[in-house]
Design a binder for these strands. Structure first.
Length: 417
RNA sequence: CAGGGUGUAGCUUAGUUGGUAAAGCGCCGGGCUGGGGGUCCGGAGACCGGAGGUUCAAGUCCUCUCACCCUGACCA
């Protein structure tokens, strides 16, 4: 993409009404725009980041043989009434609306009931199990208070997966595979080392659920972690969980974290309430075992923005950066224009995503934008680099650049997909 | 939802005891520049969140209201 053709602009000042680091940086860089409190639009480059995160998650879900679909945002109250979750005393984040004829509708804050109801049409026999489906969906939640930029909004993107099984054992085994897949996801997203699988409250269906919590100052949770990082317990279940695990809680250290994923087993509780059943090999109708698995996609983006940034701006991990290279042309001579145009084409041809700063602005503006946007590699083409016959490459996190030949450069950048 | 705070140009802000709005950034035109948001000249851009009230006169005082932020509560 040529920067001269993008409509977004960077800015020096963050809006006064944004105090969270993630929103300040993302708005300054032109990745997102605030529409309402807790409601953000994703602009072209922000969307690229979001899609990159989704693609990593999608990849791992597909590897679990889960099938992607997409459910609706308008929901019928009937299903939710069957599980007692239409009542605002039970679920206090509902947005509710009406059709013109007065029929009540709910706006999707979750999709458990609708997705399971839909699945019942197809899953009727033990031969149909196990199966697993997932989606990336916009959830609408009437939170009393939105906060922390895109980390806790009233409208956000979530990946939710649901697995259906004929037995507890099968569900347990799949659940373990999902934990491993989640670990891979967070590792590929660049936050693996700071993300813990934790024991958390299981709500009414199971004693504990597992949360994936990432160390982040802007987070809302407190985790107690063992020195070797193998045990992590959410504060809300500290006493119960340490007792269950036989761990001395005084040996655990508190850290502030943000919840980036939550998985839990419903077992047969929910399918019994919703009457979701299959016919087993013995001809008996039995409730389906269910488990569900979420990843807060937009929240992950916020957490990464919080964690990977410095005083100059964002520092995207390579896997999710909107572009891999920021190609800055310094100078407006025909020679420099020609050389940079050619490099732009060569990189694209090699499959390297490039944001080409072809604007006629001062070098300082380009350096500042390259840093603020957080593109992993900055490549400079100028009279100087042309004279040297080499290109100047700087990694976002490095202080000093290196000089490199084009073929080596392309090899280096193209190999890092 | 409770408590606290803030609304003035696209953004960040200033605005005195009430007298019809000022600057920086950004934007437009031009000059000098050209490796870390440079500089100079000229210009456009705001019915001061909204409604009502007090007053000869309201950005400023009063009432109501809306929005946004923070702390807490809440958070399958």
């Amino acid at each position: 993409m040529r920067l001269s053709q993008t409509f977004t602009k960077t800015r020096k000042d963050a809006p006064a009404d944004e105090t969270s680091k993630n929103a300040q940086l993302l708005i300054r860089a032109g990745y997102i725009d605030k529409e309402l409190a807790g409601v953000y639009s994703y602009l072209p480059m922000g969307l690229k980041v979001l899609e990159n995160i989704k693609n990593i998650v999608r990849d791992e879900m597909n590897a679990l043989n889960s099938q992607e679909l997409i459910m609706t945002n308008l929901q019928s109250p009937d299903l939710w009434k069957s599980t007692g979750r239409w009542d605002e005393k039970s679920v206090d984040v509902w947005f509710k609306t009406k059709l013109q004829d007065g029929t009540e509708l709910g706006l999707a804050w979750s999709h458990e009931e609708p997705i399971l109801n839909m699945m019942q049409q197809f899953i009727t026999s033990y031969r149909d199990l196990p199966t697993s489906v997932y989606q990336f969906q916009t959830k609408l939640r009437n939170e009393l208070r939105a906060k922390s930029g895109i980390m806790r909004g009233r409208e956000f993107v979530m990946k939710d997966m649901y697995s259906l099984h004929a037995s507890q054992k099968d569900m347990d085994q799949y659940y373990e595979r999902v934990i491993e897949a989640y670990k891979k996801i967070y590792s590929r997203l660049g936050i693996g080392n700071d993300t813990f699988v934790t024991f958390a409250s299981g709500g009414s269906f199971t004693k504990f659920s597992h949360e994936f919590q990432t160390i982040c100052d802007a987070g809302e949770d407190t985790l107690y972690v063992s020195d070797d990082k193998t045990i992590a317990v959410n504060k809300e279940v500290l006493d119960d969980a340490t007792q269950e695990l036989g761990v001395d809680k005084s040996k655990l250290n508190a850290v502030i974290t943000a919840e980036v994923g939550n998985i839990f087993k419903f077992g047969t509780e929910k399918s019994e309430k919703m009457n979701i059943k299959y016919t087993d090999s013995d001809g008996v109708r039995k409730p389906i075992y269910l488990a569900s698995y979420g990843v807060g996609i937009t929240r992950v983006m916020g957490v990464i923005a919080e964690k990977y940034s410095d005083d100059k701006g964002l520092v995207w991990p390579e896997n999710i950066a909107p572009y891999k290279v920021y190609l800055a042309r310094l100078g407006e001579s025909n020679e420099v224009i020609k050389a940079s145009d050619e490099t732009y084409k060569s990189l694209q041809k090699a499959g390297v995503t490039v944001l080409f700063d072809d604007r006629d602005v001062r070098p300082g503006d380009k350096f500042a934008d390259a840093d603020l946007l957080g593109i992993p590699f900055r490549l400079i083409i100028s009279e100087k680099t042309i004279r040297n016959g080499k290109y100047e490459l700087k990694i976002r996190t490095d202080e000093t650049p290196v000089m490199i030949e084009l073929d080596k450069l392309i090899k280096r950048l193209a190999n890092q997909a």
